[in-house]
């Protein structure tokens, strides 16, 4: 079979332009088989345009995109049955019931998943006979996910898969996505929820203004070089100048101290020793590492998107 060893998604220097605006200005990324890639970026960063190229709805103005080894636009018909695409908004028959819609899409597939099982997994059983337009946003979202998965795709495109879902539904969906990965399905997802990306993604690509601003695994990006913030509870009102200038210390609330800076073992020891030396009884200690969210915000904070009207 063509492209048997090919990456799930291979994008090389893709450019997408709308009239005079460049939405995607030379982006490359690779999603290996059986992995989850999270595409992050502010609205208007070019994520949607890039996805459209990968899903075969747009031809890139420059560069090459290959999905499962095939050309998503040229080999669209051959590719479609192997893909699952989760749309952000509706696009389904509003008057049909959830069950009818899922069974309809199941009927398009050669070897669909059991629709009842899918409905159960996504907590949609009790909405089986409810018309689509009467479903809440989160329920519609879950149905879109079911529709994307019912055909047993090899590669799934998920656009903000848990938007509008409540916390439990979000966790159930995450479990489902993790199971997909275990089954060998490749997943390309976009999200604004960085805890979602941190939890699910094997690889993360952060886009900014049509370009790749950073890429790597969540661990690489958050690079655990040092603990960043140390939170302590001790006797209130201590004079923190004694701690020295290596760290920034503050007392945001009475008796609660935050100390930040490059905190390595020696530093931690020094800090605890200092507290002991002033006779302060340290009753609680907490450390906070850099999260993916911190990384993301520092990368995107200074720039306002160029010409973004999205």
């Amino acid at each position: 079979m063509v492209g048997g060893d090919a990456a799930a998604v291979e994008v090389r220097d893709v450019v997408v332009r709308y009239g005079g605006t460049t939405a995607v200005g030379g982006v490359s990324l690779t999603l290996p088989r059986g992995r989850v890639l999270a595409l992050l970026g502010h609205n208007g960063a070019g994520k949607t345009s890039l996805l459209q190229v990968c899903e075969g709805f747009r031809r890139p103005d420059d560069g090459v995109a290959r999905v499962l080894g095939l050309d998503p636009v040229g080999d669209h018909d051959a590719l479609m049955p192997r893909l699952g695409i989760m749309l952000q908004s509706g696009g389904v028959y509003p008057w049909a019931t959830a069950g009818e819609i899922l069974r309809l899409f199941a009927s398009f597939a050669a070897n669909p998943l059991d629709t009842d099982m899918l409905l159960d997994r996504l907590g949609l059983r009790k909405f089986e006979r409810t018309r689509f337009r009467r479903l809440s946003g989160g329920e519609q979202q879950r149905l879109s996910l079911a529709v994307a998965l019912v055909g047993r795709p090899e590669l799934v495109f998920l656009d903000e898969p848990t938007a509008g879902m409540d916390t439990e539904a979000r966790h159930t969906t995450w479990q489902l996505i993790e199971e997909l990965r275990t089954d060998g399905v490749s997943v390309l997802l976009t999200t604004h929820l960085l805890d979602e990306a941190e939890r699910l993604a094997d690889d993360v690509v952060i886009m900014r203004s049509g370009e790749v601003a950073a890429t790597g695994t969540p661990a690489e990006l958050t690079s655990a070089a040092a603990i960043e913030v140390l939170e302590l509870r001790a006797d209130p009102g201590l004079d923190l100048s004694g701690l020295g200038s290596r760290w920034t210390a503050a007392e945001p609330a009475s008796g609660q101290y935050t100390i930040s800076g490059a905190l390595d073992t020696a530093g931690l020891a020094e800090i605890l020793a200092w507290f002991a030396s002033v006779g302060a009884d340290v009753t609680a200690v907490n450390t906070r590492r850099r999260t993916l969210e911190d990384v993301y915000l520092s990368l995107t904070a200074t720039q306002t998107p160029v010409g973004a009207t999205k």
Binding site: A224, A226, I227, D264, T265, L268, A269, L272, T287
Partner: peptide, 13 residues
């Protein structure tokens, strides 16, 4: 842990 000389850069609480 400090007293035991453990490298605390891997510490998470």
């Amino acid at each position: 842990l400090l007293a035991d000389g453990v490298d605390l850069t891997t510490l998470t609480i």
